[in-house]
Amino acid sequence: MTEIVATAALAAATAHYDRLRGQTIEVPEWGSEGAPLVIYYDPITAAQSQSIVKRAKGNDARATALAVILYSKDKAGKPIFTDDAPTLKAFENDVLPEVIARIGQAILGITGRGADLGN
């Protein structure tokens, strides 16, 4: 009986994650002619979060930048940014950290978006 409950709980958990896919965030600062850039993303998984933490080596700002670089997609699901050293350098030195933080926090799921998300 416990195995059935565990299987049902796991199915419910994975179905919930699937409902959260395809989130969007508008970035007016990076848009053009009054139209904000729309970034599409899926909430990151524990494995993806672990990978970011490992690459960031304890640097929270770098972890946030990496989340944006790695998981921002266009409407077709293609990456917006290239995962390379020049892109990371630009994010760390030439882009407003407040904007990166806002996008990164949404992707990382730390924005307090409400208790009904995904329901």
Rank of each mutant, 00 (worst) to 15 (best):
S51Q: 12
Y41V: 09
E26I: 01
T14G: 10
P36H: 03
I80Y: 00
L70H: 03
I4K: 10
I4P: 02
A63E: 08
A13Y: 00
M1I: 09
E92Y: 08
P97E: 00
L88C: 02
A67C: 13
Q23A: 12
I103A: 11
R21K: 15
L96P: 08
V95L: 13
A101K: 14
D60G: 07
T24N: 06
D83N: 10
L37V: 02
A76N: 14
R102S: 09
V99A: 04
L37K: 07
V5R: 11
A115Q: 10
A11H: 04
A106Y: 00
A115R: 04
V99L: 12
F91E: 00
K89D: 09
E26L: 09
A63R: 14
S72A: 14
L96H: 00
I52G: 13
A85N: 00
R19K: 14
Q23K: 12
R55I: 02
G77S: 13
Y71E: 01
A115E: 12
G22R: 07
Q48C: 12
I52R: 11
W30L: 10
K89Y: 09
A65H: 01
L96R: 08
R62V: 15
L108G: 10
I107D: 08
T14R: 15
A61G: 04
D94G: 05
F91V: 04
V38E: 03
I100T: 15
T24R: 15
A63T: 13
N93L: 01
D18A: 15
L66R: 03
T64F: 07
L117I: 14
V95C: 01
L20A: 04
Q23R: 14
Q50Y: 07
A106Q: 06
I107K: 15
D18C: 02
A106R: 13
P97R: 10
K75N: 13
A61T: 11
I52K: 06
G77R: 06
E26Q: 08
M1T: 02
K54E: 14
T87V: 05
A13H: 06
I103Q: 03
A15E: 10
M1W: 01
R62S: 07
T111F: 01
V68K: 05
I103C: 08
I110E: 14
S72T: 12
K54R: 14
M1R: 00
G114M: 08
S49D: 14
A46I: 15
E98K: 02
I103T: 06
I44H: 08
K78L: 11
T14K: 15
A13C: 00
T111P: 05
I44V: 15
K78R: 13
V68E: 09
A46L: 15
R62D: 08
A90D: 06
A65L: 09
